[in-house]
Design a binder for these strands. Structure first.
Length: 660
RNA sequence: GCCUCUCUAGCUCAGUGGUAGAGCAGCGCACUUGUAAUGCGCAGGUCGUCAGUUCAAUCCUGACGGGGGGCUCCA
């Protein structure tokens, strides 16, 4: 008999009792902590051990569930495709993946096959048995698994991507034991695992894709299969529904359905055109942003989309950003008959950033400290040659417009400026309907930076203070800053909980130097200003896409392309309603009359699918009363509203930017 | 950029080695009095582009282009 502590209670148990016996009455317990370390339920117990049960639906439990499911998948893959080599297979958010090197890449039918073999393995109830091995034994046993052998070679304290395979003090192999107790499959793994495969309640393979071995472009491509695993079928279903919901509100789909924008092939990938309805939304977004920037004392500037190379040589972009730029256009070059250059041409580039132009505006004349902070704002359209594989609708494009501003201020003004800027940013985002934020502070990368340590420290500290003052969660992105200065970014969560990086606020130590920016201080000396880059939407297109998904296309009235659509109950009331719509238009409401031959039910359906916030309906009763009826997008209705009151209600929601 | 899947009418998608179909949208006509699809008819595609294989290609192969999912990167 030995004494152990089980979930806080001291117990004396037989020495051969294991946690799986102690918790046998609760099927939800799938793993445990022994003396604070996550362990299998089959682990031998020692005198004095402190054992805590871990439920399957806890973060640790889910981690183990998903990791074990990844193992089952690997086993199934090797059963179906015997020659497949194993990479790594960690748990991730909502699921897991496993990387394989198969003879031929997987196709969707293969996933179905693999999944059905997995179900068989789960039904089999194979036990996961841990076995500690030496490096030599592991290399011998896994000689046919080159990737695993490589991992054994790099086994270290915290090899991150390899941490579920190796890592920790010892190497271990997990055997899957069949019904007869004999091993049927084995994998190098640190563990821990579920007691047996039958503890996997619900899973599904999602997709196959490629991934570089150990995440580097230089390494070979492996085939990755993603899956998801949950403590119950209901939770799996809920997860699948969430994915379906995300797909329904995908801005690329809604962009077509609501006729907002498109990507004509003739223009090129990543280059969008906005249709009239998308144009209205975009203009409403820009107009409000412009108004708020005016109130915050920004000055509006414009700059061309093209520039000679000299500007980006001066800014340094051609040194460190040329890969992200479209290649130059060469103008006025003259050649000899043999093709050699007689007169070199002038190189012009599309601009990937606006800052150098704003610096030239700053420099256009002598600046005084009295002008600072000087805030130059531009809806600046930039072009970046993004790798084709990263393009994603309007949120990741090759041509886009930043709501870009550069603030030039004194060192002493920096703290106040950053503080008020952050408040401005967050309030503006809230005005657009986003309410759930956290902040990320990216600090110096000690390997790659320009500027003085003391400046970095001061700027980082100032950013941190500004962030803390917002009382939002602050995440540290250690070493994540660009080489020219620290930054804060605002991460916003949308209506279904996804996180988007929105605004960035970045201190720059490099450009003021490269451009030799100066102002005259009160004492007559020349001083270098501090430069702050900031974009609130990031890009208008991206923000447009995020809002589209956030609202699922049902924009609040102030952004909706059509705010009200008039639907007569029958043709006889069309004239009456036409007059009402006319009054609404006169009152500044984007209203239309549906005068088509469709029946009213069909018109309601059309307006519903176009997600129009106000359906203005009129029939006999309304006409007699000089009123209209509203139908809202949620199906609710309000009848007999006097015309003036109806107009006032719409105007109010628009003015207050509320959702209906 | 890399891996993989994919491209048929404006949209969503069937389909076949012998040059094509549906629903919705569009157009026309008729119909239509209370909150998510009235009926009938018409029109619409050199099946992404270019090559190759074949007696014959939308279908098979290749290259290129567009799109999706990932990796890597990022506003």
């Amino acid at each position: 008999m030995i004494q152990v502590s089980v979930d806080g209670a001291s117990r004396s148990i037989e020495a051969d009792q294991r946690p799986t016996h102690l918790f046998s009455d609760n099927k939800e317990v799938v793993v445990c902590r022994i003396n604070g370390v996550l362990k299998d339920l089959w682990t031998d117990l020692q005198e004095g051990d402190v054992v805590e049960s871990i439920l399957i639906n806890s973060p640790d439990g889910l981690f183990v569930l998903r990791h074990s499911t990844a193992h089952v998948m690997a086993q199934a893959v090797q059963e179906v495709f015997a020659d497949t080599k194993l990479g790594i297979g960690p748990p991730i958010k909502d699921g897991f993946y496993y990387d394989f090197d198969p003879k031929t890449p997987f196709n969707p039918d293969d996933l179905t096959k693999i999944e059905s073999v997995m179900r068989k393995i789960v039904k089999d109830g194979q036990r996961f048995r841990r076995r500690v091995v030496t490096e030599k034994e592991a290399l011998a046993e896994l000689s046919h698994e080159p990737y695993k052998c490589e991992l054994i070679g790099i086994k270290g304290p915290a090899g991150e991507e390899a941490s579920v395979e190796v890592g920790g003090a010892e190497l271990s192999i997990y055997d899957n034991l069949g019904r007869d107790g004999n091993p049927v499959w084995a994998d190098l793994c640190r563990g821990p695992h579920l007691p047996s495969t039958k503890h996997i309640p619900a899973f599904k393979l999602m997709r196959s894709a490629a991934a570089y071995w150990r995440g580097s472009e230089k390494n070979p491509m492996l085939q990755r299969i993603y899956g998801t695993a949950w403590p119950s079928q209901d939770e799996l279903n809920a997860h699948l529904e969430l994915l379906a919901e995300a797909e329904k509100r995908d801005h690329r789909r809604l962009g077509t359905e609501l006729d907002l924008f498109s990507f004509p092939e003739e223009i090129g990938s990543g280059l969008a055109v906005f249709h009239p309805k998308g144009g209205i939304i975009r203009r409403a977004m820009e107009d409000y942003s412009r108004k708020r920037h005016e109130e915050e004392d920004y000055e509006f500037v414009y700059s061309p989309h093209l520039t000679k190379a000299a500007l980006f040589e001066k800014s340094g972009h051609l040194d460190w950003y040329s890969e992200g730029m479209y290649p130059p256009m060469i103008m006025d070059e003259e050649l000899h008959a043999d093709g050699t250059i007689k007169k070199p041409g002038q190189q012009y580039y599309m601009k990937p950033m606006n800052c150098p132009f704003h610096n030239l505006i700053f420099q256009a004349r002598q600046r005084s400290y009295r002008e600072l902070p000087l805030r130059l704002f531009e809806f600046g359209t930039v072009y970046r040659y993004e790798k084709s594989g990263v393009l994603h609708g309007i949120t990741r494009a090759r041509g886009f417009t930043q709501d870009d501003a550069h603030i030039y201020c004194t060192k002493e003004q920096m703290a106040d400026e950053l503080d008020s800027l952050l408040t401005f940013v967050l309030n503006l985002l809230r005005d657009y309907g986003l309410n759930d934020f956290y902040l990320e502070l990216s600090t110096k990368n000690p390997e790659k930076f320009v500027g003085e340590d003391s400046d970095w420290q001061e700027a980082t500290e100032t950013l941190r203070k500004a962030a803390v003052a917002q009382k939002l969660e602050l995440v540290l992105d250690e070493g994540g800053a660009a080489f020219y200065g620290p930054k804060i970014s605002v991460q916003a969560k949308d209506a279904i909980g996804r996180t988007w990086q929105m605004s960035t606020i970045q201190v720059d130590f490099q450009l003021p130097q490269r451009f030799e920016l100066e102002y005259s201080a009160a004492d007559g000396s020349r001083q270098r200003p501090v430069m702050i880059h900031r974009a609130l939407f990031g890009s208008i297109e991206r923000f447009f896409g995020v809002l589209t998904e956030h609202y699922s296309g049902a924009f609040p009235p102030w952004l909706a392309p059509v705010q009200a659509v008039g639907i007569p109950v029958a043709e006889a009331f069309a004239d009456y309603l036409a007059d009402v719509i006319k009054q609404m238009k006169k009152a500044g409401i984007r209203a239309e009359l549906d005068a088509s031959d469709d029946r009213m039910q069909k018109k309601v359906r059309n307006a519903q699918m176009q997600k129009v916030p106000f359906m203005v309906i009129a029939g006999e009763e309304d006409m007699a009363a000089g009123a209209v009826s509203f139908r809202y997008r949620n199906g609710e209705q309000k009848n007999g509203i006097p015309i003036a009151q109806a107009i006032a209600e719409i105007q109010k929601t628009v003015a207050e930017r509320t959702q209906v």
